[in-house]
Simulated scan of single mutants.
Amino acid sequence: MQQTTLEKILFLDIETVPQEATIKKMPESLAHLWMDKLDTLKRRMPDRYDDDSSIDDLYRKEAGIYAEFGKIVCISVGIIYLKDGEKHCRVKSFFGHDEKTLLTEFSGMLLKFMQSAEYQLCGHNIKEFDVPYIARRMLINGLPLPDVLQVAGKKPWEVKFLDTLELWRFGDYKNYTSLKLLTAIFNIPTPKDDIDGSEVATVYYEHGDINRIAIYCQKDVVATIQVYLKLIGESIIQDKHIQLV
């Protein structure tokens, strides 16, 4: 892959939490619908959802995964650029308590970055999680979808997403491979050494530390960049050339 092509990729990751701190704070209609959803999940995956967990624990643990019951608190994005013949990357975040504002700011950046059909988005499991989640939350917040997220009716080659999970599968869809595992096997410094995904809601609602979540999200973007470079046979970016802003 040509270096100029690398500069036309926007790497991203999102962090999500339940819409409320507890299920009791949800609108009654949504709370009932969440319970219906939870009943369905328990029937499908009884080993994962045991009866020992409280309703609030399961809400805190699971609701943020679903765009209908969760919200985005951080979107981190990164780009690769060349300087003095060496690869560098720059990562920034859109984060805060006002989801509509951060989505609006992200959308504006996306419109500026996606200058032509050659530009693409890249993430780990981006096709099944990040992109659908962002698109759904934009619609729920009454925001127009940028063209790159409007995939309805598009042919596969018209969809501008690079998914490191899909690239690693090589056509094998039996298993899910985490980003953390890929960084380990490629000897890339492990991301998210502070918290993990299961702790984001706790950090957000109990500690109120949105900055910590943003840093955590940025590390994931850096990891995605490094894994992608490995998957295309490129050298990874040196730590001194990684800029978090």
Rank of each mutant, 00 (worst) to 15 (best):
T4P: 07
T4Y: 12
T5W: 08
K8G: 03
K8T: 06
I9Q: 01
D13H: 06
D13A: 10
D13S: 13
T16K: 07
T16L: 05
P18L: 05
K25A: 13
M26P: 05
A31Q: 13
L33I: 01
L33C: 03
D36R: 06
L38M: 12
R44G: 10
R44S: 12
M45D: 15
P46W: 00
P46A: 03
D51H: 13
S54K: 09
D56G: 11
D57Y: 09
L58F: 06
R60Q: 11
A63D: 01
I65R: 11
A67R: 07
E68P: 00
F69P: 00
I72H: 06
V73F: 05
G78T: 04
Y81G: 05
L82H: 11
D84N: 15
C89A: 06
C89D: 06
R90Q: 11
R90A: 06
K92G: 03
K92R: 13
F94A: 01
F94M: 03
F95R: 01
G96E: 01
H97K: 14
D98I: 06
D98V: 08
D98G: 09
K100Q: 11
T101L: 13
L102M: 10
L110N: 05
Q115S: 13
A117M: 09
Y119P: 03
Q120G: 02
Q120L: 07
C122Q: 08
H124M: 08
N125W: 09
N125G: 13
N125Y: 14
N125K: 12
I126F: 04
K127Y: 03
F129L: 11
D130Y: 07
Y133C: 07
N141A: 12
G142S: 12
L145F: 05
P146N: 08
V148N: 02
L149T: 06
V151I: 15
V151G: 08
K154G: 12
W157K: 14
V159G: 05
K160A: 09
K160V: 00
F161V: 05
F161C: 04
L162T: 06
L162Q: 02
E166P: 00
L167V: 04
L167R: 12
L167N: 08
F170C: 14
K174F: 10
S178K: 15
K180N: 14
I185R: 14
N187F: 10
I188N: 08
P189E: 09
T190A: 15
T190Q: 15
K192I: 01
D194I: 08
S198C: 11
E199G: 05
A201E: 05
Y205V: 03
Q218R: 13
K219C: 10
V221S: 07
V222Q: 08
A223C: 11
I225E: 00
Q226W: 03
Y228E: 02
L229W: 03
K230H: 14
L231M: 14
G233E: 10
E234K: 12
I236R: 01
I236K: 01
I237D: 00
I237F: 01
Q238W: 02
Q238I: 01
D239I: 00
D239V: 02
D239K: 14
K240I: 05
K240G: 11
K240W: 03
H241T: 02
